[in-house]
């Protein structure tokens, strides 16, 4: 089976490497990364790839759209990937955050393993991003709770443990999260000073 030429458009080097890695270079496809988005249309036209993979939220997608709709006689048609027989895969790709542009006429069974691998890799990015956001949010909450504790310690002359206990009891009584109570307290204190 002839090799496929795959282009990954990704500015972040680390991510690009992970995507290439996830596609399993061992299967003998030619994979190139474009990290510089200036002149993207020209470079893709020169490289004539079979498949282009790009983050669904990359603004340069709209440049690829133009290539997909280009109808000049010299242009090699790049069809938008929506294999009309496999709506589920399209949906999975969009949910994972990857979008693929595939040259017209490429067999679905050749596309599927590549797209499946890309979907898996982008799922991982998504998970990492969500975890990072959760970690950040937790840190942020920690800071707010610390500030609320400090306010209570100062206002009521109690120690840190007692201040936290008070926050927790209030939260439990109201059926809310400690962080929410702390947030309210910090805000109210801000208004009073």
């Amino acid at each position: 089976m002839p090799k496929l030429s795959i282009i990954v458009v990704e500015r972040d080097r680390e991510r690009a490497l992970r995507i290439v890695d996830g596609l399993g270079g061992a299967e003998g496809h030619e994979i190139a990364v474009i990290s510089e988005e200036t002149g993207l249309a020209r470079r893709i036209t020169e490289l004539k790839p079979d498949i282009v993979l790009i983050d669904i939220a990359n603004p340069s997608r709209d440049v690829l759209e133009e290539l997909a709709f280009a109808s000049g006689p010299m242009d090699r048609p790049v069809a938008m990937f929506v294999d009309r027989s496999d709506e589920q895969m399209t949906r999975a790709a969009i949910e994972a955050g990857v979008s693929a542009y595939v040259v017209d006429g490429l067999q679905p069974d050749r596309i599927k393993p590549i797209l499946d691998a890309a979907i898996a890799r982008f799922h991982m990015f998504h998970k990492m991003r969500t975890e990072l956001a959760a970690t950040r949010a937790a840190l942020e909450e920690r800071k707010i709770i610390d500030r609320a504790k400090a306010i209570l310690m100062k206002a009521r002359g109690i120690d840190e443990e007692a201040a936290y206990a008070l926050l927790r009891k209030t939260a439990m009584d109201q059926g809310r999260r400690v962080a929410d109570i702390a947030q309210q307290l910090v805000m109210a204190a801000g208004l009073l000073t």
Partner: peptide
């Protein structure tokens, strides 16, 4: 907040 028109179209088309 979306970053491309293709993304907007895809999100609307797939129920996002």
């Amino acid at each position: 907040r979306l970053r491309s028109w293709a993304q907007s179209r895809d999100m609307l088309g797939t129920g996002g």
